[in-house]
């Protein structure tokens, strides 16, 4: 592979299940050392895309190259260099935490001695050394997730693929996982992850695509996306009622855009501190006012219009 060529390259990639098109012709490039994210709501096609890249699901159309190889013909060679953490923990229930890692290493043809050594190192890495001899069942959700992530690292992969690495974890467990993934990134490991947490995408991803309905809605770094699709700041207004439409129409023109959510109104403005007085000048008295920096969440809402009524 030549330097600079993308590790993953998809052109017009399609996945169909019967008549249903789950992934509808996406173009994606992931480069070495990058942390790349797929951000999107339920059913956007994130996992389907991940599974195609992971060579466990044959594409229905388009082109896909992974590590310079063809997933259809060189699946085993590609998978040998990938570390996959699937959306659902599919750990081996009959084995202990440590046995899970050793056994998994054996599937990669790694010798017993090296496998044991790596298993111990990785248990340490995800802070599970004390539970090494425990079966999978009694481990907490967060521990299982960490074990699944450790398992994905057992072959020292060139690319680590993480499908919703922190879904269902409590904040503490999430931060531990983020911290570990950040360390991997610093070591130069290429990360590909999916998430519907905006903060996760902002924290971890150098670059990401926002997926919706099987298509790519936008692509860029978190900062670029925020600049392109949102204002610098956002004012969140609550009025102590769910009937927010009348208020929204009165806010016209204060900021660049107004979005109505079920429980609050978002007012997009480059400078929140001048926008808030303008709200009061129109004789509106919100019960709650919050000025915050724009986030990927705003980009996402803007692009997908999910649960929103465009003001």
């Amino acid at each position: 592979m030549t330097d600079g060529a993308p590790l993953i390259s998809a052109r017009g990639l399609i996945k169909r299940f019967g008549d249903f098109t789950a992934v509808d012709g996406i173009d994606v490039d992931v480069h070495a050392g990058e942390a790349f994210g797929f951000l999107g709501p339920n059913g956007a096609g994130k996992s389907s895309t991940m599974r195609m890249i992971g060579c466990v699901s044959p594409p229905s159309g388009g082109e896909l190259r992974v590590l310079g190889m063809d997933p259809q013909r060189q699946g085993p060679d590609i998978r040998a260099r990938l570390g996959v953490c699937p959306q659902e923990d599919n750990l081996d229930q009959e084995l202990t935490a440590r046995e899970n890692l050793v056994t998994y290493a054996r599937y990669f043809g790694i010798g017993r001695k090296v496998a044991r050594q790596r298993a111990d190192e990785l248990l340490e890495f995800v802070q599970l050394s004390e539970r090494a001899g425990s079966k999978v069942e009694p481990l907490s959700g967060g521990m299982k997730r960490r074990l699944t992530i450790a398992r994905a690292l057992v072959n020292e992969p060139d690319i680590v693929m993480l499908d919703e690495p922190t879904t269902g974890l409590d904040p503490q467990a999430r931060h531990l996982v983020w911290e570990r993934l950040f360390r991997l990134k610093q070591r130069g490991t290429t990360l590909v992850l999916t998430t519907h947490y905006m903060d996760e995408a902002e924290q971890l991803c150098d670059r990401l695509v926002i997926m919706d309905g099987g298509a790519v809605a936008a692509e860029g770094s978190p900062r670029e996306l925020i600049e392109r699709y949102s204002t610098r700041e956002v004012v969140e207004l609550r009025f102590g009622t769910d009937a927010l439409e009348p208020y929204a129409s009165k806010l016209d023109g204060i900021g660049a855009r107004v979005e109505v959510l079920p429980d609050r109104i978002l007012l997009y403005a480059d400078d929140g501190d001048t926008a808030v007085p303008a709200v009061y000048e129109r004789n509106l008295t919100p019960s709650g006012v919050l000025v915050r920096r724009a986030s990927l969440e705003d980009v996402f809402l803007h692009l997908t219009g999910r649960t929103l009524v465009e003001a």
Binding site: G54, P76, D77, N90, Q93, E94, Y107
Partner: peptide
């Protein structure tokens, strides 16, 4: 039920 092979197929094993 155990979906054991789902994880195995993510390795080079065919």
């Amino acid at each position: 039920f155990a979906k054991l092979y789902d994880s195995v197929l993510n390795t080079p094993v065919t």
